[in-house]
Design a protein around this nucleic acid. Structure first.
Lengths: 365, 365
DNA sequence: AGGACCGTTGAATCGTACG
DNA sequence: ACGTACGATTCAACGGTCC
């Protein structure tokens, strides 16, 4: 175990250690790991239960490890584990933490207060998030990762070319579109229940680990859970150290990791990038002023007209709805493609079909 | 100026006030604005002299300020203006703040510490971000907004239906794809130089203001800059209060706001959700003969049927009660929306859902 | 075989008006 | 203030079944 950096302490490489991550990190030599990925408890503070419109119950996070007395207790915990993480991190290593609005501001503040140097915040845009069932907020469709160097002067690693190649030869942006961990990838027990409430998708860890480490380097995960970080690290030819308090999670992680076949180095560079589909809501044209609120729309024969409202709905007499709904309504047709039906009168009397305004936005990501 | 809430202080509506936003907010009556949008400056120089966001030099010129002091000064400033903002915000009002990874964690932590209740963090995904020229990080392609209520118990406003309409009848997510402010929208001086370094796009403010206010309500921007918030508020038929310390920015903002034409009432009128519509008791439909007593109701699958009584209750076997109670009972569900559950058989065998009968009374006073 | 259809599910801080 | 009853509210992916 070569990486002991002259401390006399050996690194427990490619192992899952069961116990409290703070105590376990204290036993690791300083400046010994190249990268850290940490998915700490989010402190969600859920109250009652939540039902879908069909009355089925949402299986939320209700584990003891996610409960803290208050924000101060959460902050104290955060400072403590981040302090050990910083000690264990090599001088030029980097750390990733992930969270939601419940905890990410506490994490970011703690990182900065401890001297870490934020390099990016990265948005995991979920392809298939849970909707907001009550219609009281925006769909919570992302989580935030913070990527930080040990300090402002760190000469950290960033595999720029690998990230660019992952992204069809344009620079990798700070917003990543990746599906949830579902289907066959999701670990389940015999009854079909999920083994861990918050298992992260391997695609996310693939990108994280590939971005900031080289093969053979050491990735530490202080909150290993069911082992996504370690499994991906192993597949990508990295070494790992996984810390996990719950023996059941740790056991599941070990079994999972054992089943992983390390990739050859060339194969490690390939990723199954899910391409994002393009759909442009009419409302976006309104916001952007391309078809401003107040615009009068007419059909090709100028038989009907409608006024565009600020929310992208249109109104024709008492009827209000989407361009498609109102188009169908006035024609008494079962359906209507509003993009082709409605036109904007141009100076000079020419009509321009809505679809032409949409193509102006087609090029955008 | 009606909204003074009995304080004797008047609200300076539709004005740009020049001065320090903290001092100016102290002169506003408490609980007086419906929404706040804040784009606080992040001018702290991390190398060399330490300056406050208002450009004043922090005392102790000869002192070696380290990173901690930088952050502490920023935190103190943040707490101070957010404290005043919270005082000025109505009980059920909401606040938006925007920032990047340099300051958003400080903002979020301060919001939580002051008792604000985070509703969403929202990602502004930039369509055309500046590339990372050095190739040392991910392209910083987004900024983060935090949307928060004044407190955990606030009954805040969220125009769910309008947001859904803006997004082609799919729930609005927490990641928004909007271009930078460029082209004709970008304010420039005679030489073509940008008037303000971080002018926000109007499309962003359009969505923000539309999501959480009604026409006629008051939007406060403590860091108005060149007036995007006020201009969009005016266009959407909202009132505004803009605070700006730089007289040049304030002057540019005023000129810009003056040139804005408010939308017509019909264009500003946004899709109303069912929650906004008047509540109509089922009994009224019975009284009015729209669904006469004796009518047989069935569910969509014709599994259950019930008979309408003269008092608007319905009976299904031995069960009698409201359309909701009986619907829940027969399904053995915890609750039921009777308007959507029960149907009336039409001549020809078609089923018509109760909700459709309600529409006839919707327009009446 | 393959397309249509249906059931399940995911880190969730998910009411409000009226008496 | 507090209790009660009304009644509003979901998207995409995946896997299994049926025809």
């Amino acid at each position: 175990m070569g990486d002991g950096v002259g401390t006399g302490l050996d690194l427990p490489l490619d192992k899952v250690l069961v116990g409290d991550c703070i105590a376990l990190m204290r036993q690791l030599p300083p400046a010994s790991v190249h990268a850290i990925f940490a998915d700490p408890p989010y402190n969600l503070q859920l109250k009652g239960d939540l039902r879908r419109p069909d009355d089925s119950l949402v299986d939320g996070v209700d584990e003891a490890w996610d409960r803290f007395d208050d924000l101060a207790a959460y902050d104290a915990f955060t400072h403590e584990w981040l302090t050990e993480a910083r000690r264990v991190l090599r001088k030029d290593g980097t750390i990733w933490v992930i969270g939601s609005y419940h905890n990410i501001f506490r994490l970011g503040t703690a990182l900065q207060d401890l001297g870490f140097w934020v390099l990016n915040d990265v948005i995991w845009r979920k392809a298939n998030p849970m909707p907001n069932f009550r219609g009281r907020r925006f769909t919570n469709a992302h989580e935030t990762l913070i990527w930080a160097a040990r300090g402002a002067e760190s000469r950290y690693r960033f595999n720029y070319a690998a990230m660019k190649s992952l992204n069809e030869e344009v620079q990798m942006r700070s917003d990543w579109f990746i599906p949830l961990c579902t289907g066959a990838e999701r670990l389940r027990d015999e009854t079909g229940a999920k083994l861990h409430p918050t298992q992260k998708p391997e695609a996310l860890l693939h990108r994280v680990i590939l971005s900031c480490t080289q093969p053979g380097e050491v990735v530490l995960d202080p909150f290993l859970g069911t082992g996504t970080t370690a499994a991906v690290a192993r597949r990508l030819g990295r070494r790992y150290i996984g810390l996990e308090r719950d023996p059941a999670y740790a056991a599941a992680a070990e079994a999972r990791i054992d089943s992983v076949e390390p990739l050859s180095e060339s194969a490690a560079l390939v990723t199954a990038g899910k391409r994002e589909q393009k759909r442009i809501p009419f409302g976006h044209l309104v916001e952007r002023g391309l078809v401003p609120a107040g615009t009068v729309l007419v059909d090709r024969g100028r038989r009907w007209q409608a006024v565009v409202a600020a929310d992208g709905s249109i109104r024709c007499g008492r009827a209000q709805g989407s361009i498609h709904q109102v188009g169908a309504l006035v024609q008494e047709a079962p359906s209507c493609n509003g993009w082709a039906f409605w036109h904007v009168e141009q100076p000079g009397g020419r009509l321009r079909v809505l679809d032409e305004f949409r193509v102006a936005l087609q090029g955008e990501g």
